[in-house]
Design a protein around this nucleic acid. Structure first.
Length: 265
DNA sequence: GGGTAATGAATAA
DNA sequence: TATTCCTTACCCA
């Protein structure tokens, strides 16, 4: 489930269980084979998530950049003794002496130099899960206010805000009562700030729980069913949970956009 | 067992 | 705006 919260959880997993160790790196599927040899046996110094991108910094100066895209998935597993056989199309496997991380189906998995990493990160917009929240907020507000693009498109643009995807886009706009087609420049500064802080709140809940929950009643306590977690995402033709109107789905720039035509008039 | 959709984004045109 | 990348999960039979 790769929006930003997932990637930050993965960074934490690497930091906790793989950082500070020399890792065995391989590409069972073969497509990362040459690159994996350059970091095989090298110590992982640190991991970092920025938006939906994961960076793994190795002691020899090489950095792996991974972007899951729509299909990518990690699988972590403890092992004892012999390494388990990789199952399916494993692009890259990182192994410590007791745990493996298998990556399948990523959009991007490549080795970058330090300079290239700096350039990639410089291109990314503010991340709601970054530490310096206030500075990030100011960047987001200015990005939105100076653009005539629809707010529904701006929230999907990783240069405007990084880490938000199709689920959080729809849910953030619903919670704000904003029509997805309103130009960013038509919004007032306060409502854009509120949108930012709501993004921080939702991604933090997602980071904590590991799933995207956007209804306050489920922020704590037991995990609700998938069908109960959100207000509008994938709820086309169902009743709005606030006003009872019929949730609509429209395609916006190749992606499915869900919204309530009444709450978000 | 088959068909389809998916939480993304680069690229072509 | 449409196509392509790539793999899995889920729904239906």
């Amino acid at each position: 489930m790769p929006e930003g919260h997932t990637v930050h959880r993965t960074a934490r997993e690497f930091q906790r269980n793989f950082a500070g160790k020399a890792l065995r790196v391989s590409s069972p599927q073969g497509r990362f084979d040459a690159a994996s040899k350059r970091i095989d046996g090298i110590e992982l110094v640190a991991s970092q998530a920025v938006g939906k991108q994961l960076f793994l910094y190795f002691e020899n100066g090489e950095t792996v950049r991974i972007h899951l895209g729509i299909y990518g998935k990690w699988r972590f597993e403890d092992f004892d003794g012999a390494l388990p056989e990789p199952i399916g199309q494993v692009r890259v496997r990182f192994a410590s002496d007791s745990r493996i991380a298998d990556l399948r189906g990523p959009t991007a998995c490549e080795l970058l130099s330090h300079e290239e990493v700096v350039a990639v990160i410089a291109d990314l917009g503010p991340d709601p899960l970054a530490k310096n929240v206030d500075e990030q907020q100011a960047r987001f507000v200015s990005n939105v206010l100076r653009s005539k693009a629809a707010i529904g498109q701006l929230l999907m643009n990783q240069k405007v805000i990084s880490g938000v995807g199709n689920v959080y886009r729809a849910e953030l706009l619903f919670r704000a009562g904003l029509n997805p087609y309103r130009p960013g420049s038509s919004l007032n500064e306060d409502s854009v700030s509120e949108l930012w802080f709501d993004a921080v709140k939702l991604l933090e809940v997602g980071f904590r729980k590991g799933v995207m929950i956007t209804r306050e009643e489920f922020f704590t306590g037991r995990l609700p069913l998938k069908s109960e977690r959100n207000f509008v995402y994938k709820r086309e033709n169902q009743a709005c949970r606030k006003c009872g109107s019929t949730i609509r789905m429209e395609i916006m720039a190749t992606r499915k956009l869900y919204f309530c035509p009444v709450c978000q008039a």
